[in-house]
C-alpha cells in the first residue's frame, strides 16, 4: 500500500496534469498495472500530450514504442510509448489506440528522433501507418512481403510462397 502511495507522490504532477486536461474536456484515463503509470490518450490528442510531457515534465528519453494487437473489432491496435524522465528517474507509459479499418496514428518522430525506427517496426509488424513520418518503410521484412506478421491472424509458419527463395540453379552472372 505504501508502495502505491509512493508512486502517486512521484507521479503527482502527471496526475494533476491529467486532472487539468480532464477539466478541459480531454478524456485521458489513468491506470497502473504492475508499477509504471499508464495514461490512455485519444489519438487526436497524442502529439499534444507527448509534447507537453517532454517539454513540461522532462520526459526527454524515449525508451521504446510497443505495438500490440488486441484482436477486437474497432480499436484493434494499441501503441504504447515508454518514456523516461531522467531528472526524477521515473517511467511513464502513454497508450493510444488505432482503428482496424484505418490504422493511422500521428508520428512522434518530430518529438524524439529515435521514434522513427520504432514506428517503422510497428508499421512492419502490424501495418499501422504513421502520418508525417520521415521515412516509413519496413524495417525487417523486404518491401515485397505483403502481410503483417504480428497480427494475430497471421500463422506462425507464414504463408507459403509469400516470400521468395533463391533459385537453386547457379547464377550465371555471379559464377562467371
Amino acid at each position: 500500500m505504501s508502495n502505491q502511495k509512493l508512486h502517486n507522490d512521484v507521479y503527482s504532477d502527471i496526475l494533476a496534469f491529467v486532472e487539468y486536461e480532464r477539466g478541459v474536456t480531454h478524456p485521458i484515463s489513468v491506470y497502473r498495472s504492475t508499477s509504471d503509470l499508464t495514461l490512455v490518450v485519444p489519438r487526436d490528442l497524442l502529439i499534444e500530450t507527448l509534447t507537453k510531457l517532454k517539454e513540461e515534465h522532462h520526459f526527454i528519453y524515449l525508451v521504446d514504442i510497443v505495438g500490440t494487437d488486441r484482436f477486437v473489432e474497432g480499436d484493434r491496435f494499441e501503441i504504447l510509448y515508454n518514456l523516461i524522465d531522467l531528472k526524477q528517474g521515473r517511467r511513464l507509459v502513454v497508450k493510444t489506440l488505432a482503428n482496424e479499418d484505418t490504422p493511422i496514428v500521428p508520428s512522434a518522430s518530430a518529438i524524439w528522433t529515435n521514434a522513427s525506427w520504432h514506428e517503422r517496426e510497428i508499421f512492419d509488424m502490424y501495418g499501422v501507418h504513421f502520418t508525417e513520418h520521415p521515412d516509413l518503410r519496413r524495417v525487417y521484412l523486404p518491401e515485397d512481403f505483403e502481410y503483417y506478421p504480428l497480427r494475430k491472424e497471421f500463422p506462425l509458419l507464414g504463408i507459403p510462397g509469400s516470400i521468395d527463395l533463391p533459385t537453386s540453379t547457379p547464377d550465371q552472372e555471379a559464377s562467371s
Binding site: 498495472s33 525508451v63 515508454n82
Partner: peptide, 18 residues
C-alpha cells in the same frame, strides 16, 4: 490483463521485456 515492463542492464544497454 496484466502488463509489465522490466529492464535489465545487459552489456549492450537497456534490455527490456514488455
Amino acid at each position: 490483463g496484466a502488463e509489465v515492463y522490466h529492464a535489465v542492464e545487459a552489456p549492450k544497454g537497456e534490455l527490456g521485456y514488455f
